[in-house]
Design a protein around this nucleic acid. Structure first.
Lengths: 123, 123
DNA sequence: CTTTTCAATTTACGCGCGTAATCTCCATAT
DNA sequence: ATATGGAGATTACGCGCGTAAATTGAAAAG
């Protein structure tokens, strides 16, 4: 079962949080970034529950929600499916594409260089 | 207007083709890879037309379809939106993520190294 | 005990997508 | 001229998603 775009925005709140959050806290956290009404966010929390991407523990009359799906897992499956679909499953062609498009900044380049060197040292 | 998953499969056929293809040829090309019935593919072609992602030119009683949206553009917008959403808009963190996940093969590593060196030379 | 309050759950609704059947129209054969 | 066949166009339909209102249910207040 896959996480939709709107659902992933809610996940982001939970991922950034230190601990479990009440629905009210999630709503508060999203007030800055979105125009979603409270019922909308409740719906998204429930859909995420049904997908087992989050868990809820009772806290008096409320529930506290926390992410069960780890952000790294989510990021990986999203990235992998794109790379599989568009770049034959390998990372280098993606980098090559951005390079050819002139979309690799100095910062990116420096960081990539560092990364590669580091990996080379390990090998 | 964005291209859906199923639509992108049709686009792939047109991108790989040397020239414009008839609907029949598209259907034939997809017979190996998908179980889609002919009307399904016609629907997808029509939706792509409506989105101006492809163009049709009359050829006697048929139409010949060809991609108007370039593959590079598509690949770029898909990749960019993922990188924006998940990696702060920069390529290096994506590579770092795959590296940390142990998902950079020898081949990837070698190719990345070559790429980086090449770019360094240009600079 | 009844009323109010408030969180969670249920229901709603339009839209695009995946999938496809049906309809329409024109050309060709009889 | 009419029937047939094949290509494109129209219509269909269930599903998840984005968005949210209405309902339920239980706790707190009076």
């Amino acid at each position: 079962m896959s996480i939709s775009d709107a659902e992933s925005v809610v996940m982001d709140v939970l991922w950034r949080a230190a601990g479990p959050l009440s629905a009210e806290e999630v709503v508060a956290a999203l007030a800055d970034t979105t125009d979603w009404q409270e019922p909308t966010i409740k719906t998204l929390l429930n859909r995420l529950l049904k997908k087992h991407a989050i868990v809820a523990e009772r806290d008096g009359k409320r529930y506290l929600y926390s992410a069960k799906l780890k952000r790294t897992e989510y990021v990986h499956s999203e990235s992998k499916s794109l790379i599989d679909r568009l770049f034959g499953g390998r990372v280098a062609p993606l980098v090559a594409h951005f390079s050819e498009a002139g979309k690799l900044g100095k910062k990116d380049l420096a960081e990539l260089k560092r990364l590669i060197e580091e990996l080379d040292d390990d090998a």
